[in-house]
Design a protein around this nucleic acid. Sequence first.
DNA 1: TTGTAGGCGTTATCAC
DNA 2: GTGATAACGCCTACAA
Lengths: 366, 366
Amino acid sequence: MAPRKKSETPPAPNTPVSMADLARELGVSMTTISRALSDHYSIGPEMKSKVLKLAKKYNYQPNRLASALRKGKSKLLGIIVPYIEGRFFPSVVHGIETAASKAGYNVIICQSNEDAAQERRNVEALLSAQVAGIMVSLSRTTTSYQHFDKVQSRGLPLVFFDRSVEGENVNAVVLNDQEGALISTRHLLQQGCRRIAHLAGPQHLNIYKNRRQGYLDALREAGLPVEEELIVYTDMTQDEGAAAMRRWLALPNPPDGIFSGGDYCALGAMQEAARQGVRVPDDVAITGFSNEAFTVITEPTITTIDQRCEEMGQATVRLLLELIEASGTTFTPRQIVLRPELLIRDSSLREARKTTGRRAAKAAVR
Amino acid sequence: MAPRKKSETPPAPNTPVSMADLARELGVSMTTISRALSDHYSIGPEMKSKVLKLAKKYNYQPNRLASALRKGKSKLLGIIVPYIEGRFFPSVVHGIETAASKAGYNVIICQSNEDAAQERRNVEALLSAQVAGIMVSLSRTTTSYQHFDKVQSRGLPLVFFDRSVEGENVNAVVLNDQEGALISTRHLLQQGCRRIAHLAGPQHLNIYKNRRQGYLDALREAGLPVEEELIVYTDMTQDEGAAAMRRWLALPNPPDGIFSGGDYCALGAMQEAARQGVRVPDDVAITGFSNEAFTVITEPTITTIDQRCEEMGQATVRLLLELIEASGTTFTPRQIVLRPELLIRDSSLREARKTTGRRAAKAAVR
DNA sequence: TTGTAGGCGTTATCAC
DNA sequence: GTGATAACGCCTACAA
């Protein structure tokens, strides 16, 4: 479409009105209009109100493209996530969008689909769109980081969240998975468990490595031995949780507590226990990880670790905005570590006084 | 930040390179560069490859802001959703982003938080950002639609999805809730249920009104009477489902089938049945609506209606792109109605041959 | 306090 | 086939 011709008549009602249109209408210069609209200091109050009134009348919308082009700074932030599904990423994105919008920014969202090449293309697209900063949770297949070097060498603020690159040289917001595992396992110990098993996830992923470490820390702290038969490595699926539980229940001396690195896996174990007539939490107490939505609807409800999705989103935006404002000056990279929260529910609580009444699940309204 | 001064030296490595920089380097005009990069017809092949090589060397990124400003058309689409949580909206957004990105568009996401005023602000922001089109799922509190009239009067393509305004004058993609209810209730009839109850949602919301209507249709079709004591109006929560079930089980003649307008509510009913020793599906068959993630992990798994979230996203983008391409020409608004899918699971399947083995739940990896 | 003018990076139009 | 030039809408020295 060819650009609209400049006309001397007032703008058609269905066409966006520019500052030039307002200027012509009032017989003043564009500068005046610009100052009135941007609340500049040197502008007569009556002039200003006249401009504002006309702007409202014509429903003037500033063209942020033009503004960004001129100023070299847009009001757009970019997010790259592996995907927008499940519980975790949508919640973080929710937190990000809320915080960004509060600060006057809009957010462009991209999915890498766990594909490094796609992630690279996402970065290019965001650079092309002239975003003011980028937030990334790494794709699982990303092994080289040049595309991010390029971002930083342009002086464009960059913050990783949840899945970050290692090191002190990046800005990142992550959850302390190890601490989560530690407090969860400690809780099982406090409930009287002495033989605590662990459903571990793929150890090449940091989150699962750290969760296993936290579990080990808690055992050591309590002076308990680590028994290899009590650690089962899984892909964190429900079925693998059930399978592990079957193996454990077949032992001469089965565990009396289980810390699972994920909720689905914990669920599988719990269901297998029920099938075999083993009582949860009395015979075996179980805790999960992630606070999946279903953990409050099972019977018993599942003790788990909340990952502070919303806070993670907020913290990510806060850090990014700091970087944007400090743009130009030197800024020492920061890693923000969020503290996980243990949500104690019925699957691990052995005392007589259980949590009173199930937490009402959110309405299934869409 | 003041715009960078035009310099005669090659660009610093950390600064974006423009077409002018390339032109200077090659001693040709910007026009030539532009043509080479945009694959224009009148350009010498050797010139073209020279330009492309240099562009790659300097890692040239087109400035889409400038391009959009000049052309009056950006490569950005806007989405407005009530929120990015639960199962439904994230999945639709996932579908939208995937389809948009395939077509070379990026997506700005906004949340209205079920607030009409916020929704209005979202529209303004997207207009300001000069998006090429807008996709909206209405906030629950939206009662006036002027902000959308403004969008359309600007000639900006607009498509509603899921929560749309009524009428033939809008472009929309919605699910046929009534049909979903119909096939779900029919399925219960086929399973031999003769007294089918309904957990209904708030009737001022179209989706629940339509689901109730589908239920009534199925009863009429089967020549069964509508009994008011078998329809309970709820807010679709788990607890209300349980409460309704309690009332039904206290009847002299309890229902032998239940069609719930939502999965959480169905779950509550199912759990209450279990507590009272009533067998599902043999004593009472139950079906839900929405295909929430938990419906495959309960025991028994819950029969439900899939809402085609991904397809909805794709269809929305397809329709919007059509509108964008038809921009200027007259385009008769279209309403696309997606057909829901009945997922038959154990909570309603009375025959001996149940679904073999629980469907493996997706790994709880984040 | 207000106006003038140039430029942000790209592309369409015209001339060569 | 290539080049010069003028916009797109906004912002900001600088001048008045």
